[in-house]
């Protein structure tokens, strides 16, 4: 008797992967850079790594909120860049700028054989998260409680902003002065390619 067959499904939407990656990256950065005290984080297993995500309800809700919006824009290809800036609470000076560029893979025609497996994507993401974690070695130590973060999204001018004041048009791109930049590995899904980069202020 032939075995019963049915192909098993292992599919996750590309935009799903990307938003998830952003969410974990943001959490990792907030933890690694000491924006919030480490008590606010708990460890979870993800991408074969132990990552720290916040369990502070306010921060969680905030991240959740902009991630939801971001996700909608990613699905509709409205976003080209997603930026997390770390700002000094007192001076308002930007000291660090984490930038994620979202590019759309254009080769839609034909190349079905190039379908990337979920494992490959996971491995790429794992490498980036590792690099983000390791970046504390060269980034300046930040005092707990002196900094906060902000999210910038470079979106298509046609996007509809939700009818509340959560998103505002940003006047400046919050670049870091006297900065050095380090770029991380990139990862790609079948539909998107993500580049990651950090710029940081260096006192001389």
């Amino acid at each position: 008797m032939s075995p019963p067959t049915r192909s098993s499904i292992s599919f996750r939407g590309s935009s799903q992967i990307i938003s998830e990656f952003f969410e974990y990256s943001v959490n990792s950065i907030l933890y690694q850079r000491g924006i919030y005290p480490s008590d606010d984080f708990k460890s979870v297993k993800k991408y074969g790594l132990t990552l720290l995500v916040t369990h502070d309800e306010d921060i969680k809700a905030y991240i959740r909120k902009f991630m939801t919006q971001l996700h909608k824009w990613i699905i509709n290809d409205k976003v080209s860049t997603f930026v997390l800036v770390i700002v000094n609470k007192n001076t308002g000076e930007t000291v660090e700028r984490w930038q994620f560029n979202i590019a759309i893979n254009q080769e839609e025609e034909g190349e079905q054989s190039k379908q990337k497996s979920i494992e490959d994507i996971q491995r790429e993401i794992q490498a980036i998260i590792r690099q983000i974690t390791a970046s504390v070695t060269f980034l300046p130590t930040l005092e707990v409680n002196d900094y906060t973060f902000n999210i910038l999204v470079y979106a298509d001018s046609s996007v509809n902003l939700p009818n509340n004041n959560e998103w505002i048009d940003s006047q400046d791109s919050k670049l870091v002065n006297n900065s050095e930049s380090v770029k991380f590995k990139s990862f790609s899904t079948n539909e998107h390619k993500i580049d990651t980069l950090v710029s940081y202020k260096l006192d001389k």
Binding site: S135, F138, P140, T141, S181, V182, K185, L197, S199, Y200
Partner: peptide, 26 residues
């Protein structure tokens, strides 16, 4: 800035040899 940026991969192998400091490393 993306093109000027240093590739982390050039540093990554040595990451254990970098001590985090208050002012960071260039």
């Amino acid at each position: 800035i993306y093109h000027d940026a240093v590739d982390f991969e050039t540093i990554e192998d040595q990451k254990e040899n970098i001590e985090p400091t208050r002012d960071g490393h260039s």
